[in-house]
Amino acid sequence: MTGWLFALVQTLCVVLFAPFLAGWVKWIKCKLQNRQGPAPWQPYRDLWRLSKKQVVLADVASPIFRAAPYIVFGATVVAASVLPIVSTQLPTAALADVIVLVGIFALTRFFLALAGMDVGTSFGGMGSSREVTLSSLAEPALLMTFFTLAMTVSSTNLSSAVAYLSQAHFTLAPSLIFSFMALLLVAVAETGRIPIDNPATHLELTMIHEAMILEYSGRHLLLMEWAAMLKLTLYSILIVNLIVPWGISLTLEPQAIALATVSVLGKLLVLGVLLAVSETSQAKMRLFRAPQYLGMAFILSLLGMMSHIILEVR
């Protein structure tokens, strides 16, 4: 029972923390570019403002358009609830393993892309088309990465995987190096960051995610924006908990949890800084260069799996 209560509280905390991480990355980025920049808690103000605005709905919009924000946000919250963040003793992790997690992300993308197609403007269609194209390359790479991991720890359960990795003897196995490189590349693509997509632009030639949600306003836009921030946070948590899992609590003891919270927060903020540095130091790619980038991620993940099966299984 405590476990389930803990999972609930943890989910709530992640959902509330997500805007801060997005604001933090933006703030660091502004500092790196010698700009004043909004405070890291600016996203909270934006969301609060959106929650009070009236919704303006396009006259051709169908019920899918109105349902999509709820579906997208709700599914992302469910994804947040199954992720081991500060403790591996997470009862909700049994609901959904890592393949289900990828499936839930795919569900959000499906409805996001449908919402883009709904209003019948070229912007939405363009965004949807690009989104499904790029993620059809990114998703296999992500799954392959998780498969390599699952074969290493002989489990697709994320809690077991993180627990195994944090307890195991530290070895730089070639399969894990390849897989983690692929994971980083895919995470950048899937969360719509530079060099694949740019969350700060509204230029039709470059945008993907923003093009799909162009018609949204008010509370619908709030949900879409929040879901995107939450997705960024979830991928960040996946990265830090899989690559540097040390510090995560293996129990539900209050002290251990407190310590693990501090450590995971620190790791996330550092990762945010790294993301800001990487985004500042490179330009956005042309759309048709992106397949090469994602193809590389796919090859890396496949290499990771091959090297695991051929070299490491005895």
Binding site: I64, A106, F110, A113, M117, V132, S135, S136, M144, M305
Partner: peptide
């Protein structure tokens, strides 16, 4: 085994693209 599961993963992702196209073009929009 890994190569076929990679192909299956790619298939699943492309199926999503295909059915977004179908549903978006047939049922949504103008």
């Amino acid at each position: 085994l890994p190569i076929t599961s990679a192909m299956l993963a790619l298939t699943g992702a492309l199926a999503i693209a295909c059915f977004v196209k179908v549903y978006g073009v047939v049922f949504l929009g103008l």
